[in-house]
Nucleic acid binder design. Structure first.
Length: 292
DNA sequence: AGCCAGGCCCAAC
DNA sequence: GTTGGGCATGGC
């Protein structure tokens, strides 16, 4: 273990489940280590986490990083009681989705990694998304350290990806998404990244953010909403993918093919908490629970 | 073997 | 403004 790193305990965490938060489809660089603990790679760091009741053990991290990175990453300081209460009003499905997804938190992830990851996610399944991203990191990321018997690599830098040519991504098996990823990296490097960071940290509306994101190659409405929600702190974002279309058509009686109507419904009904509502519904639908 | 996946792009209406 | 075909790859 590196110098300056140690073990820390966060106590009395309510409405928090490490497992649900990591496994609900919003992030891709984590692994369960077989002893109920998780290794996460993010922000050029490797961290081990394990939850026991309301205690969260954090390993291989400095005190500074615990405070300045991981607490924010896990959205620990937000009050989820109020969120769950509000979105569940007069909605029996949401009550079940919230119960089933107990402890889910919307992570605050690195913006560039979120953009790249969700470009890769399009028309792809989650296990394969994880494999693609790991391969990408092994090939073009920076070696960090050996942790728990595995070589760990950071997510590749924006500038690195922007300098690639399509054939250089052959081993990553991105298919037609390779072009989108490189094109977007170049757009970001040319100035859009700075703009987006300002929109993330400033007062840009969610609509403004979505419009800007949609100008990126390989970023349509759904991917833009994921980036806004997971990488830009825009909790009003409401990503509608195939699972959302299923659950909203089956339960809310909406037209399966009218994604725009679903986006409107989500943002109008759940307002500033739409993103949380979406994550509970997505999780519930994907668990394959019979929603009839 | 065949269907499907946290969809997007682009041409044709 | 909406619709539909095409698309790489491999999990299941």
């Amino acid at each position: 273990m590196s110098r300056g790193k140690n073990k820390f305990i966060i106590e009395d965490i309510k409405n928090f489940s490490l497992k649900q938060t990591l496994e609900c489809g919003q992030c891709f660089r984590y692994s369960e280590e077989g002893d109920d603990s998780y290794t996460i790679i993010a922000f050029d760091r490797v961290v081990g986490m394990k939850q026991v009741g309301e205690k969260l053990y954090i390993e291989n991290s400095s005190a500074d990083d615990c405070l300045n990175i991981w607490m924010n990453y896990l959205d620990v300081d937000r009050n989820y009681e109020e969120i769950k209460q509000t979105i569940s009003e007069n909605d029996e499905l949401m009550k079940r989705a919230v119960a089933s997804g107990y402890g889910i938190r919307i992570l605050n992830q690195d913006l560039w990694e979120t953009i790249a990851s969700f470009i890769i996610s399009s028309n792809n399944n989650i296990p394969r998304i994880c494999t693609c991203i790991e391969t990408l990191a092994e090939q073009y990321g920076r070696y960090i350290e050996n942790y728990r018997g595995r070589e760990r690599y950071s997510f590749p830098e924006l500038q690195t990806v922007a300098s690639l040519e399509i054939p250089m991504l052959d081993k990553v098996k991105l298919g037609y998404r390779a072009r989108y990823l490189i094109e977007t990296a170049r757009q970001l490097e040319a100035g859009t990244m700075k703009e987006l960071e300002q929109m993330r940290d400033g007062r840009a509306s969610t609509k403004e953010v979505l419009d800007r994101l949609s100008t990126l190659s390989g970023v349509g409405s759904k991917v833009a909403n994921c980036i806004a929600l997971f990488g830009m702190k825009k909790a009003e974002a409401f990503p509608v993918d195939i699972w959302m279309r299923r659950i909203m058509s089956e339960y809310y009686g909406m037209d399966f093919d009218d994604v725009k109507a679903m986006e409107r419904y989500g943002t109008e009904r759940f307002g500033k908490y739409a993103g949380y509502a979406q994550q509970y519904l997505f999780n519930f639908a994907r668990k394959g629970v019979d929603i009839t």
